[in-house]
Design a protein around this nucleic acid. Structure first.
Lengths: 227, 227
DNA sequence: ATGGGTACAATATGATCAAATTTTGCACTG
DNA sequence: CAGTGCAAAATTTGATCATATTGTACCCAT
């Protein structure tokens, strides 16, 4: 059986003039966040140095960072791979995400202006189109953008950081779920969130966020327990 | 003004046969966790390679990991230092710690046996002695051990991981508080936690944990806003 | 103050060594 | 004679270091 190889054409989308280790980190980070790596897939240092055309030191640094993020796991025998989640992991993540992200949206609700809400609604509109088109990659990106944008208004960098880590953990698994069941089965509570934001009802925003999270994570949970 | 230099005698307490980058990580990690580094203090790669007598690659890996942990911060211009917290950071950490760690102790309560509770009580007894002796380092270590031990029974690695990160963030600041006000002003709710554990009352365990956290963090918060 | 030069620290690479996995080959058995 | 299993070699990957290069800040002269 042949697993997906690290693509040789990772052009390391250079964002201006950032150090190489940062570019490698960002590249891998979005691959994981958007499920371009399969859970369980091994990630090798040499494979990355070859495919990215950079030295090993920056690759090592990026990998250590991602391990600390929970985006990659160290397998004991110096092997690194994309995490495989079990149902206990998912339960913990449901709890943590609801705790942290509800608070983030509660705080954001207090700071959002009308045109900020319009912007969020715009993202959600595009998101609906992705779902209709069955574009899994686009769905994952826009869903993440919706939440990230919302949370950014909370001005809570530490909570944000905790939330980001959790997203990195389930990114690959969410992709697998979408790939198996399609995008049709992906309902969300974004409309509820937007309505509550317009009404200035922070508690309802938090509640809708919690429901959105629970729905999405429960999907992963079911997919895993049936595997 | 001269900040504390990285000690040259960091003997890298070798735990068996771990790779150097892991040893460096663990060494720095406990220095930060137990406040042996001062908030704001710069941390240089070269300084560590010199004082630890190892190459730069493993040092770089350890530092990247600690940055991802939130235990160190990247200052933009290639500088790395120990984080300085503001009151907003503390508020976020109070919320996150109470959410996560209450749940950890709630889960642990269900799994603890009688002799496990004895063990916890033993740690707390030693902790009291440290407070009486004014031994700040000992206090920090045993307080951490008390919580870590309790949480370890929760069998919740992901929640545990989130909690650990938060501890790394406030370690240096807590040390400063203790150094300024002494250990006398450090009350805790450990007795309440142990009593509730013996009664098998998980909710009360969670509540006492939340109070313990709030008390401790509020201390840091006051110290910061008065600075 | 401002601007150039110097010193120092960070970044990145390639070389080297060590460890682990995979492959290969041989012997032994049914 | 074919198939299985073990063992050793070969290959792949990881870990560390030494060195060259680049960027940043500090200092001094103007």
């Amino acid at each position: 059986m042949d697993l997906i190889k690290n693509k040789a054409s990772l052009s390391l989308a250079d964002g201006g003039k950032q150090p190489v280790h940062e570019q490698v980190y960002q590249t891998l980070r979005s691959q994981i966040l958007f499920g371009e790596l399969v859970p369980g897939q091994p990630v090798t240092i040499q494979g990355l140095t070859d495919s990215l055309g950079v030295g090993m030191t920056p690759v090592r640094e990026a990998i250590r960072r991602l391990i600390s993020d929970g985006a990659l796991v160290f397998q004991g025998n110096r092997r690194v791979s994309v995490p495989l989640l079990n149902s206990g992991d998912i339960q913990q993540m449901i709890f943590a995400r609801i705790s942290i992200e509800s608070e983030l949206s509660r705080r954001a609700a207090a700071n959002l202006q009308a045109d900020d809400i319009d912007h969020l609604e715009g993202i959600d509109k595009n998101l609906d189109r992705m779902i209709a088109d069955g574009d899994v990659g686009g769905y994952l990106r826009l869903n993440q953008a919706f939440h990230e944008t919302l949370y950014s208004y909370a001005n809570a960098p530490i909570l944000n950081d905790l939330a980001e880590r959790l997203w990195l953990r389930f990114g690959p698994s969410l992709r697998v779920v979408c790939g198996r069941f399609g995008t049709q089965s992906l309902p969300d509570r974004h409309k509820d969130i937007i309505t509550a934001l317009r009404n200035g009802n922070a508690e309802k925003v938090a509640k809708a966020t919690a429901q959105d999270i629970e729905q999405g994570m429960e999907l992963i949970s079911e997919a895993i327990s049936s595997a």
